[in-house]
């Protein structure tokens, strides 16, 4: 069973193919925010170099976010159309899960943190378990102060990973002692996406393309302003994934 993974939730475009033997091929580029230009030729290139026909793919895995909205939609739209055209099922994974998984051999709490722009961060916490990681804090959207408060509340030893963590490294470091993962691990990759999706695919935990739900975690600005005006409150949690 071969799985094609597509990931465009941050500035990186990442495409991988894998299966029982693990990851067979990985293409990543992280310059210039040219997601739409890159993703289709990347899939074509990867298939050709790995000598795999698209018809051999059984499942399309995709990063559903949270991340940069326009970027993540490029991958989601490309992945959904590919699954629709090939008539194969899909598996959606969170970008934060993909950041945490490569750190599963740590004995610390893992804080996966993605830069959400506009002074905000998307983050979730994980603890290592045999064979993987387990979420101990569901994905959040908040400011760096919120992240620091949530980390302090847990009181564990922490390793931070992600472009959001690196961006606010000094502020986080000033408040609590923690480690930071390597820069090359700071963006979600399609390699762990394919690995994680493979485990799920074995249990047939997949959905149809139109059932894939993006995880935005933040309402469009117009909607935030609208609800503020209408109710005099700042309820911006309505976009949380169900």
């Amino acid at each position: 069973m071969l799985i094609l993974g597509i990931e465009t939730a941050t500035e990186q475009v990442s495409v991988a193919i894998g299966g029982h033997e693990g990851v067979l091929g990985l293409f990543e580029v992280c310059r210039g925010r040219r997601h739409a230009e890159t993703v289709t030729p990347a899939i074509q290139f990867l298939c050709r170099q790995a000598d795999i026909e698209l018809a051999e793919i059984s499942v399309i895995a995709v990063d559903v976010g949270p991340g940069l909205f326009t970027g993540m939609r490029v991958g989601l739209s490309a992945a959904k159309a590919l699954a629709q055209a090939l008539r194969i099922p899909m598996i959606g994974m969170s970008s934060l899960d993909l950041l945490a998984f490569p750190l599963r051999h740590t004995d610390r709490t893992i804080a996966a943190v993605i830069d959400a722009r506009k002074g905000e961060l998307f983050y979730a916490f994980y603890r290592p378990v045999p064979g993987g990681v387990q979420r101990v804090l569901e994905p959040q959207c908040g400011r760096v102060d919120d992240l620091i408060a949530d980390l302090m509340a847990r009181g564990d030893d922490v390793v931070c990973v992600g472009d959001g963590a690196l961006r606010h490294r000094d502020e986080i470091h000033a408040e609590l002692r923690c480690e930071f993962a390597e820069q090359f691990l700071s963006r979600p990759s399609a390699a762990p996406l394919v690995q994680l999706a493979h485990a799920r695919a074995l249990r047939e935990e997949w959905v149809n393309p139109w059932e894939i739900q993006p995880m935005y975690l933040r309402l469009p600005d117009a909607q935030i302003n609208w609800s503020t005006r209408a109710q005099g409150s700042t309820d911006n949690t309505g976009g949380l994934a169900r």
Binding site: H35, A36, V39, T40, I43, Q44, L54, F69, T70, R73, V74, G75, S77, A78, A79, K80, A81, L82, Q84, A85, L86
Partner: peptide, 19 residues
């Protein structure tokens, strides 16, 4: 609208590739 266009373009290129 760039974000709107990209949804269509990404899907269209996928279909072209798959078929």
């Amino acid at each position: 609208l760039i974000g709107a266009l990209l949804v269509g373009v990404s899907a269209a290129k996928s279909l072209a590739l798959a078929w």
